[in-house]
């Protein structure tokens, strides 16, 4: 996609379009960011701070809780993001078929989870997955398990539960982006392909996916950031502890605890925040790289 060099007038127009956003971002982000960068070099409690150089970074490498949170966050990211993206894409494509009946109903139903309040949804999930909850009862009746699974008491199953919960909540949300993007695709290309006898999977693979690529890239980056900042679910499901045994503790929850629950240690929590920034930087770069490679090949 080579673009001709912009002339001077166009270049100025480009700046004008982005100026309001840049001014606001400069106003509301530059100072906080510089501040938090500066804080990440401060050590001490509450308001008693002093310059500590790289002490916080050193502390990170020796902090078992941080390392656990980092590991958990990655586990959530690696398993959850692909599952959700694929599901959302499939739902969107299925619901974009104009011959499908009850489209409006299905669309609304699958969107509902992200509009349902966090309180209602975490309460329902917890009771469904309680030791004597409906999920265990069903699984036992089907003889899939011999004894009830302690979903929130077992480190492994707690992770599984969190992955299921976020997927449940955010699939419909991602689906919206795809549905909207699918409207921007020229239908006549599909028609032509169908008349030529191109099977559905091939239309999906060679028409839909390439045309949705910018939006797929967008949702992937957004979901990556969302997962790395995962807080709501784990905080609500585990009373803010990230238990059992820190098995669901995420970086975001750890930052919150360092800031508000533990002895206030803003310097250290700012350092952990910047770890997320660095991670997202690396991951987004990789995602863009993959997207670009495919484009050129």
């Amino acid at each position: 996609m080579a673009q001709a060099r912009l002339d001077r007038r166009e270049n100025i127009t480009g700046w004008v379009f982005i100026a309001p956003a840049l001014i606001l971002l400069g106003l509301f982000m530059i100072y906080p960011i510089v501040w938090s960068l500066w804080m990440s070099f401060q050590v001490g409690k509450g308001m008693n701070l002093s310059f500590g150089g790289f002490a916080n970074i050193l502390r990170l490498t020796k902090d078992p809780v941080f390392l656990r949170a980092l590991g958990n966050t990655f586990t959530f990211f690696i398993f959850q993001v692909p599952i959700m993206i694929v599901l959302a894409l499939l739902f969107a494509v299925a619901l974009n078929d104009s011959t499908l009946k009850f489209r409006g109903f299905f669309r609304t139903a699958i969107f509902l989870p992200c509009a349902t309040s966090l309180i209602a949804y975490s309460t329902v999930f917890k009771s469904m997955f309680a030791i004597d909850g409906v999920v265990n009862q069903t699984l036992m009746q089907l003889h899939l398990i011999g004894e009830p699974i302690s979903w929130l008491g077992d480190p492994f199953w707690a992770k599984v539960l969190i992955i299921m919960a976020i997927t449940w909540r955010w699939t419909g949300y991602n689906m919206i982006f795809y549905l909207a993007a699918l409207q921007n695709i020229d239908r006549s290309i599909y028609e032509a392909a169908r008349i030529d006898g191109v099977p559905a999977w091939a239309r999906f693979r060679y028409l839909t996916i390439p045309m949705l690529k910018p939006v797929i890239l967008f949702t992937t980056v957004i979901s990556t950031i969302g997962t790395l900042q995962l807080f709501d679910e784990v905080a609500n499901f585990t009373a803010g502890t990230g238990g059992p045994s820190d098995s669901t503790l995420t970086l975001s929850l750890y930052i919150y605890n360092l800031t508000f629950k533990f002895m206030p240690s803003f310097g250290y929590s700012a350092t952990v925040s910047w770890v997320i920034v660095v991670l997202v930087g690396i991951l987004s770069f990789l995602q863009f790289l993959i997207a670009r490679d495919r484009r050129t090949s």
């Binding site: 480190p155 502890t241 238990g243 820190d246 605890n257 533990f262 002895m263």
Partner: peptide, 17 residues
């Protein structure tokens, strides 16, 4: 003391075991 929340968190990590 001042670090009860921190120790609580460490205890919680060991409770399932």
């Amino acid at each position: 003391g001042t670090f009860t929340a921190e120790v609580d968190s460490a205890v919680q990590a060991q409770v399932p075991g």
